[in-house]
Amino acid sequence: MRTAFIQEFIRQAREHPDLFLVVGDLGFSVVEPFAAEFPDRFLNAGVAEQNMTGLAAGLAASGYHVFTYSIANFPTLRCLEQIRNDVCYHGLPVTVVSVGAGLSYGNLGYSHHAVQDLGILRTLGELTVLSPADPGETRACVRWLANHPGPSYLRLGKAGEPELHAEQPLEPVPVKVLDGNAEVALVATGSVLKSALEAARAVHAEGWQVPVFSCPWLQPADERWTAALAGFRCLLAVEEHVAAGGLASLLRDALPPAAEVRGLAVPLAVTRQVGSQEYLRRQAGLDAAGVLARLRAWRTG
């Protein structure tokens, strides 16, 4: 996804002379092509995320649409107040980009488990929050962002994620990526959509047509957003994030009380473990088998 990000960002920068990239001394083997093509729109702020975000706001006030780029919790939680006060309050076009969503950097341990960002950043109502699931959604998000400068957050996975569905322009609604007529639907955000799709395909093979939605667009979630998920007896949210403040929480906030929302999230205990993303997803019940088990459990009541 980070490769899709930088390739699309470079394409957009050719058309949008206001796009600017500020990195926090991270992005080795990712950001170099941008820096080479646009040396006057690239800056390494050093290992200093508060200053990076503050000066990004200042650059934004000078007429640029600035993307700050770092990994895990560094461009989000380390400089949360700069995002809140400098960017959001002043309504400036800064897009915070974090690579390594969820458990992408699982084997690097707790410091690199980015599983609270959505809950925390969703409380900043000024932010548009985007969380793509695959390279195609990432490109669509970057295209949308380049055309809509404003306070925003782009939550990216790492590298090598597969394309999960056909690319389409970003709309401020959940995207149906697998059709179905069941009373329950799977709703995922981020690259863990893959687990949801695999679980759904397994039950489709048995004749149980569970639809799957991807949510690259999380905030703002207006009536149109909720309408896309109306009519189901139950929504099973799948997210690489703790339960507090994440996708299931958003669904409960946004949907009518009648809709039952169940969540599959990262238990805090899993953040104490290290291992590959695949291993930690298994530990969290967020692999395809875990999602499948929850689906079957719902059916049997």
């Binding site: 200053n51 200042g58 650059l59 006030a61 700069q82 006060n85």
Partner: peptide
């Protein structure tokens, strides 16, 4: 007033962005 403050340590980083922006433009 260019910039709201109240939490300390915010204006100088923001000022760097303005100074960089002025230079690049």
């Amino acid at each position: 007033v260019e910039f709201s403050t109240g939490s300390l340590g915010h204006a100088l980083p923001f000022g760097l962005g303005l100074a960089l922006g002025a230079r690049w433009r």
